[in-house]
Amino acid sequence: MSFQAYIDNIKTKTGKSPEDFKKLAEEKGFLQNGQLVKSAKATEITNWLKEDFDLGHGHAMAIYATFKGKTE
């Protein structure tokens, strides 16, 4: 599955885009000014995405990758 397919499936499932998740992550303290906070751990973030949005591990990692700047 391509990266874009992951993002499209997440949007279909949750109604949220990577930008929406970035805003939510800022509210949770995982991002600051669009950048990952050094103390934020990948596991913390993926667990949040799995629990609150019912994402699988691969989909949660795709959102985490967008937090790190990946777009493809």
Rank of each mutant, 00 (worst) to 15 (best):
K16V: 04
K13A: 10
F21R: 02
N9E: 10
I7W: 01
E26N: 07
H59A: 14
I45E: 05
F53R: 03
K41N: 09
L36A: 07
E27H: 08
T12I: 12
A40I: 14
K38N: 08
L24N: 03
N47V: 13
T14D: 01
D52G: 02
A42S: 11
S17P: 01
K16S: 05
I7Q: 04
L49G: 02
K68W: 08
K38W: 07
N9D: 09
L36V: 13
T14H: 03
D52E: 15
K13P: 01
Q35M: 13
K13T: 09
Y6K: 06
Q35E: 15
K28M: 13
Q4R: 04
T43K: 09
K11S: 04
Y6P: 01
E27L: 12
K68N: 12
E72R: 08
H59E: 15
F67P: 00
K50Y: 00
K50E: 15
K50M: 13
E27K: 14
V37L: 11
K70I: 15
A5R: 06
L49V: 06
S17C: 05
K38M: 11
D8C: 03
I7H: 02
V37K: 13
A65G: 09
G15N: 04
E44M: 12
Q32C: 04
F30G: 01
L31G: 01
D8W: 01
F67L: 14
K50F: 00
G69W: 11
F21W: 02
I10Y: 02
Q35H: 08
K28S: 06
T66C: 10
I63E: 07
D20R: 04
S39F: 05
L49Y: 02
Y6C: 05
L24S: 03
K70S: 09
Q32A: 10
F21C: 01
K41E: 15
A62N: 09
A40E: 13
I45Q: 03
M1S: 09
F3D: 04
I10C: 01
Y6V: 03
E19R: 07
G69Q: 11
T66I: 14
A40P: 00
